[in-house]
Amino acid sequence: MTKKVHLDHVHLLHLLKAMIRIRHFEAKCVELYQAQKILGFLHLYDGEEAVSVGVMEALTQDDAVIATYREHGQALARGVDPKCLMAEMMGKLNGCCRGRGGSMHFFDRARRFYGGNAIVGGGLPLALGVALADKMQRRSTVTACFFGEGAVDEGEFHETLNLAKLWRLPILFVCENNLYSMGMAVERAEADIDFVHKASGYRVAGEKVDGMDVVAVESAARNAIDRIRSENDPYFLECRTYRFRAHSMFDAQLYRSKDEVEAWRKKGPIVRFQTWLEANRLIKPEELAAIEEEVDKEIAAAVAFAEAGGLEPVSEVERFVTMEAVPS
């Protein structure tokens, strides 16, 4: 029951642009990190762009998203303003979280983006609650819950899948399997590396999808969401992908070979999709140039916005430790 993605010209260019936006945004983040304008951890999504772009295409604005600490791609693909994200990376008051969260903790209430979460597996139980609240309030939404394969090691994965099935919650579980949890290779961490099989242990239906193929991801996500809505049940997608760069900026990558990384780079989601578009004459060189130029302009504007942003006064540091009211 594969659902065809409507592959018109506009949509194809839109997918490519969304992936290039993430890639270029992060390349700029690396520069700013080296210039010490971005501090702390910087977990790059380089190589995994097709997963968030493909999945977000299948969501509506009413749906909810829960992400991990490697969530630049999810936030951008969800439509969170790159300006607010860049300002957040630089710890500025005009950042999406006033500079309190940083790279690992983007939140955007208006887009139902319930956070980057830096505890592996920590977002999975939240997804249960968001989906449950929507269901109890008779909203016909889906909650997309992103997590890496490392989260499968955690008890929260198992508790959450079980409860999601038991309570028939509309959750799309998106396992971004990039083969390493930091330096731990998946086959060294999991006795069974068939994640769809694991999900089936909780009677959650699922499938594997090539996470380096944006069209395949979008198609799988659309089918999954149709199924979630029609069958009133959670669904599990394993997106097989690869992280081209280090885990964070403090990683010497002793756990994998350069050859392995190079081999995966050749299968990268952008190069592969772009090559396919070019081979099929679906994109003209000037269209590609225009995309790159527009994206780079957006990012330059984001950097300018962030640079111009002020700092939150230290006197405000205890603000929001307790809230005065529930925001509506």
Binding site: L126, A127, L128, G129, V130, A133, M136, E159, N162
Partner: peptide
Amino acid sequence: ERIRDTPLSESAFVGAGVGAAMAGM
């Protein structure tokens, strides 16, 4: 629907409480 027996999954059902509170309950 309003009196929910849970499995022995403290992390999941407490986290579900957090998520549900974030989403209006």
